[in-house]
């Protein structure tokens, strides 16, 4: 009795196995049963996470496979990046890359973009320098002259050494002759609490952060070559308009999607197509418009070229700040 049933079991098993083995040969990408994971190297609910979630929702509409966002945060953005580099280059794992990837790579925390290939560049989120309304500085000129009078007394906060605000704050400090006390905080929210509480004098924020605290924050200057497209922030001058002609601070975070090097071309093409459709969807375009994001769409090789440009802009700052590895 027992032998018979055991035999039966094994037989069924072999039958099922052979069935799967056949299915395995087809090699369709994406396998509708598998999930495509978009690794966001920051925690859920953060600024970067926010840019990608609506995009992923749109991407789902253009492929049979399920797409999930996975937040692997830690060590700047390098933990998530390294995790993508550890997984096979089969197109099932994408990385939410961008300026943070360049910065983490230059700091030697990860092999980063050297081991990645671009799928699509998405957008820029320009940074805004702001202070608490109660502080005495009315504009950027005020702030800089006050800082120059007593170097080191005015603190300039960023959202962490690994990210784009870190580079922007160091860049700004270098541009003004190192008169600020640059202090890293634990993410954008931590920085915002400390600026709102008056513990840190000046902060570098993204636009949506300023909007959330419009009643308490005074934006001084936008670190970008054009003004914000948001109605509420349109009055904020650019560096040039504020009277600083020849300063070049890389002030913003760029977001893109990358895969590990060695992903087959046909899979990359398919991914590019999915992202393009999602990007051009009405929902995502509206989302970017509402949040004042500046469109910066690049595909495949174009993105790789664009990364090199960002690297050029970053490398001088990183070298002077002693962060280059």
């Amino acid at each position: 009795m027992e032998k018979k049933s055991l035999f039966l079991l094994i037989f069924t098993l072999v039958f099922i196995l052979s069935n799967y083995a056949e299915g395995q040969k087809e090699e369709v990408w994406p396998d509708p049963e598998k999930s495509i994971t978009v690794v966001v190297p920051y925690s859920a609910g953060g600024g970067t996470d926010l840019i990608f979630r609506p995009l992923v929702e749109e991407m789902k509409k253009f492929t049979e496979a399920n797409i999930i966002v996975s937040n692997i945060s830690g060590a700047g953005s390098s933990k998530g990046t390294n995790e993508v580099l550890n997984l096979p280059a089969d197109g099932y794992t994408l990385l939410a890359s961008g300026t943070h990837t360049v910065s983490a790579t230059l700091q030697g925390l990860t092999d980063g973009y050297k081991e990645l290939e671009g799928i699509a560049g998405l957008n820029w989120d320009p940074f805004i320098v702001a202070v608490l309304k109660e502080k005495p500085w009315q504009n950027m000129q005020d702030l800089v002259s006050a800082a120059k009078k007593n170097p080191g007394t005015i603190s300039l906060g960023n959202a962490g050494m690994g990210g784009a605000t870190g580079v922007a704050s160091v860049g700004m400090n270098l541009a003004f002759g190192g008169v600020f006390n640059v202090t890293p905080f634990n993410g954008g929210k931590d920085l915002r609490v400390n600026v709102l509480g008056g513990h840190c004098d000046v902060g570098i924020f993204s636009q949506s952060e300023i909007l959330a605290n419009q009643d308490k924050l005074k934006p001084l200057v936008i670190l970008y070559n054009e003004r914000s497209r948001l109605k509420d922030l349109n009055g904020v001058p650019t560096l040039k308009e504020a009277g600083f002609e020849n300063l070049d601070v890389p002030g913003g975070s760029f977001r893109s999607i990358s895969v590990k090097k060695g992903t087959p071309e046909h899979i990359k093409d398919k991914l590019i197509e999915i992202v393009r459709q999602a990007y051009n969807s009405q929902t995502y375009q509206n989302f970017m418009k509402e949040n004042g994001l500046i469109l910066a769409y690049y595909e495949g090789k174009e993105l790789d070229e664009y990364f090199k440009k960002i690297e050029q802009a970053y490398i001088t700052i990183m070298r002077e700040a002693g962060l280059l590895r």
């Binding site: 949506s208 909007l211 959330a212 419009q214 308490k216 989302f287």
Partner: peptide
């Protein structure tokens, strides 16, 4: 994501 900015707004 739904376009509501918590806080002041």
């Amino acid at each position: 994501i739904k376009g509501v900015v918590p806080g002041y707004q």
